[in-house]
Simulated assay, not measured.
Amino acid sequence: MSLETKSFYPSLQRNVTPTSCGSQLVSYSSDIGSKDGPILMLIHGYPQSAFIWRHIVPSLVTKYSVFIPELPGYGISSPVTTGDHSKKSVGTSILEALRAVFNVSPSAPRKVILGGHDRGGRICHRLGVDATEFLAVGIKPVAAIILDIVPTKVQYDIFSNPTYVKGYFHWPFLANVDVAVKMLSAFGGGKWVRHQLTLAGNEKGMSRIQADGAVDVYAALFEKEETLRGSCDDYAAAAGEDYKQQVEDQKAGRKLGLPTLVMVSAAGVGARSNAPEVWKDWVQEGTELSVVLVGEGVGHFLPEEAHDIVLEKMVEFLGKDV
């Protein structure tokens, strides 16, 4: 069975849904049958797949309906064909797939918890700011869980710090799509992924990333030029439309109005930015915000490296009235 057709979650339903961004979006889902209960959506980041949630999902599926999409253009869901790779467009397409899978409509609405790591976290941030736009189609975002990022505008603005930009050189590199695809193809996409995953904080974290042959899965997906280009287009959108939208958001006072849990690596994002203070400026006044710094040398890949801590904090957060 090829990776394109394999299900990483055999106990969940595997779905393939056409979307307005042109992608045939692959997702894994489970519905516990409570139409009043929220759907927990979990979106992966770079350079990985939905397989990153494997340590967490088994403990959640008995409590929540879940929807776990494969990002368009990351090797399993087909690429975006419209040319719009913005978080707004891709996120809206992911919600379209969720609506189709769960038969959501204005007459049969569902609450949704927006959850994501890395690029997935950026999509959830965008969808959270735009939450009221989806009420008309039956989707009511009720909370956001964002793992190991600061907002895209903040990330780019602090690139004036030489130490910071050195650690995140891949942002401007990947955003130069044609050059990046050629260079990564020459270097080897799989080899590049294996290098990127060394951003794990320590040996324990690395062993958790490697569990279940996950690194081989991620590396194989990035051997395809289609994946290299699709993921680079994602970064190009961050440097373009995504940044512009967040500039406009801040000018207009459009901020997250959902209860929000942010978790960041204390040794990574937490050390390079004052995440608790940064995120306060991106959440509406009076809105619940919890920012957790994950210590013990944990690196960027929180859903794998620190899956026990992430699960504990998620369950604690979701146990509130969301």
Rank of each mutant, 00 (worst) to 15 (best):
I145G: 00
A200R: 07
T62P: 01
V181W: 00
A144C: 08
T163N: 14
K88D: 10
M183G: 05
T82G: 09
G121E: 12
S107E: 14
G116P: 04
S160K: 10
L127T: 10
S160I: 14
A175T: 01
T163P: 01
K140R: 14
G188L: 05
P79C: 04
F67R: 02
G201H: 02
D84G: 13
L199F: 11
N176Q: 15
T62A: 15
F169T: 04
V101K: 04
D130R: 12
K140Y: 04
Q155G: 06
M183C: 14
G190Y: 01
T62Q: 14
Q210I: 11
G73H: 02
G115M: 06
V104H: 07
S93K: 10
F134P: 08
G73Y: 01
P69Y: 01
V137I: 12
V142I: 15
G120L: 07
F169I: 05
A131C: 10
G73R: 05
S77E: 09
R126S: 08
S77N: 09
A175P: 01
F67Q: 03
E203I: 01
K88G: 04
N202K: 03
A144M: 04
G75V: 12
W171Y: 14
R99F: 02
I139M: 15
G73W: 02
S160N: 12
V150D: 05
G121C: 11
H170V: 15
P72K: 08
K111V: 10
A136Q: 15
T62S: 15
I146D: 06
I149L: 04
D84F: 14
T82M: 07
G83K: 12
F102T: 05
L71I: 15
R126C: 08
S107F: 02
I68C: 09
V154Q: 02
P151K: 07
S77P: 10
Y74D: 10
F187P: 09
D130T: 07
H85C: 08
S185L: 03
A97R: 05
Q155M: 12
R110T: 14
K140I: 01
H85D: 12
K182W: 05
V80Y: 02
N103Q: 15
R194L: 00
L98Q: 06
T62R: 12
P79K: 07
F102E: 07
S160H: 08
K153E: 03
H195W: 00
C124H: 03
V80T: 14
A180E: 06
M206V: 09
V142R: 12
G190F: 00
Y74W: 13
W192I: 07
G205L: 01
G91E: 12
S160C: 05
F187A: 09
D130H: 07
K166M: 15
G138A: 06
G167E: 11
I158S: 04
V179R: 13
V101S: 09
V90C: 05
G83V: 13
D118W: 13
D148P: 00
P79I: 03
A186Q: 09
K191V: 11
C124F: 00
I76E: 06
A97K: 06
A97P: 07
H85E: 07
A143G: 05
E203V: 05
F67S: 05
Q196I: 04
S77A: 13
V104A: 12
A200D: 11
S185Y: 02
A143I: 02
K204E: 14
L98P: 05
A186H: 07
R99G: 13
